[in-house]
Design a protein around this nucleic acid. Structure first.
Lengths: 178, 178, 178, 178
DNA sequence: TATGAATGAGGATTCATTCAT
DNA sequence: AATGAATGAATCCTCATTCAT
């Protein structure tokens, strides 16, 4: 039993290292980066990666899930505008989520994790509307759409701080009254 | 000379068929789709694709250039808001441009074609501001950023007509006064 | 008839241009250079090259034949030692012959042209032996073998003038008495 | 650790089989032979060849290095004349080295391995000169040049034993006094 | 469970050769 | 006879995935 527990702990540690490595590698090189590169960065053998994540898509889904959970957590600490700003600022660091949220290429479905994020953003939206900071006519779907859009834009466009501020200013103004 | 023209016409037709096929294939499967698939769809042998476009990137650049030219032309027929709406509506059809405009993955530089589009959008912005339809504080860079962002969002998010309308409504409101 | 003659003259001119181009191209890039490159250098279309020389090997054989004929002619103007020196000095310029004489890669048989060269060298050998400049025990096959060997060496080794002189000095000494 | 060694042993065996196959294939068909053919002959999948030798040039370089090492070893067991004779006799078997030593086509640099061979031949030359078997005026560069030349000649010319003997006789005579 | 070697399908690209004009 | 576009087999190389150890 001790040995089993030991192994399980090792396995858990490996799983985490692989996820960390994958997040870094895919953020740096995109999802086209090879699984070997992830293994290399994680310091494990390629077989270990595939033991934990039977396919590359499984690995991507796992990253996605973890990142979404982080986002949900971060959403809890901010108001809608701050969360928007935060996500855009983090876009590059979270490249993989943004890409996958956006649906590009790989076919990954994480309805639960995504709906958690939607719920979190939904709460922020309600709060903002209750406070009169966002027009009542604004609905969650378009907020999500704007969030994802602007993250993608920021991510791929390589915006500087000023451009980011000006772009968000337009969106924020639009949210306040439309 | 007639004969020469004839031959050239055949080649032109093939070039166009390849571009059409590539546009469709890359729109459907992303830029990772194989050149073989493009050849298959165009009904030509793989060598023919490479005769016209020596590398896959050349093919992508050619699609891009053609689509950008179309966009510039279409920009000439609309006001800023209509052009925004039009681009978003066309996003899926123009997937490849949007992706490449966004800079994802492949390394393609078309400064001229892109700056033509920027100029066209710049004109629309000036007109809109002259007409008082857009706040004077809004500058071209953020308009481009919003345009690309929202196209990407629409493209990858698979928005329906309503979502598209609502999302644009927020942006348009933001452009009017911020 | 005039027209036929005209055409034939054109064709002859093209044939010569192709041979010249091929000689230059293959000398510069080796026999792996593409037939298109030859056509380009000759200023004709690829089809014209294949009309004159149905396969690439035919083209190589033709070059070979022409170069061998030149060598035979040059042999007539020199004694054995001078011819040796001349061939070695020309090795780079005649890369293709040397390569093909040596049999590398492509499968080309030109028994006639080669035997003409052998005959010419045979004459030089006889003269040299008659003059007492070469030992009587030396036979033609080894002279040819040495000639080809040393040309290949010079060609691929990129010998400078000094190395060339020293290397030939050893061979010449060996020919004088063995 | 035992298990690790075992696996490594398997890989080593495959590496050796690939090198053997490559040596045979390139000797038979020249360096233009395909990597697939090497894989076939080695009885491994193509990916295995590329896992061991990331590019075809790496494979050629590896063969080269191994053959040069063998030659250096063999040089240690003979005098200059015997080594010359041995190399020429082995030329066909060592086709690839000879070709690559000669610099034909592929761009491979093995300065170390080549200079080891030069050193070995240099030693043989010194011994031969000390014993009065070779004229003092002869220097290493021309000996190397002659060696490579005559190997190429033998290799590509398909010399029989007699021709080989006669040709070497001329060179040996030239080395003795010039 | 971890390792990492092996697999082999797939992808970009080249080039000798054919053929419609 | 010349043109040059089209063909498609062949080549090098990559990478997700499997499996023996």
């Amino acid at each position: 039993m001790l040995e089993g527990t030991q192994l399980r702990a090792d396995a858990q540690r490996n799983r985490a290292r692989i996820l960390d490595a994958a997040e870094a590698v895919f953020a740096e090189f995109g999802t086209r980066a090879s699984t070997e590169e992830v293994a290399r960065r994680a310091g494990v053998a390629i077989g270990t990666v595939f033991r934990h994540f039977p396919t590359k898509d499984d690995l991507l889904a796992a990253i996605m899930k973890r990142l979404l959970a982080q986002l949900v957590e971060e959403a809890g600490k901010r108001d809608l505008f701050a969360f928007f700003t935060h996500m855009v600022a983090q876009a590059a660091a979270k490249k993989t989520v943004v890409d996958l949220l956006a649906g590009s290429g790989v076919d990954i479905r994480l309805p639960d994790a995504v709906s958690h994020l939607e719920e979190a953003v939904g709460s922020l939206l309600e709060q903002a509307q209750a406070a009169g900071a966002v027009a009542d006519s604004v609905r969650l779907p378009e907020v999500m759409a704007l969030l994802v859009s602007v993250c993608q834009g920021a991510l791929h466009g390589g915006w500087d701080e000023q451009l980011q501020a000006h772009t968000l200013a337009v969106i924020f103004a639009g949210l306040k009254r439309d």
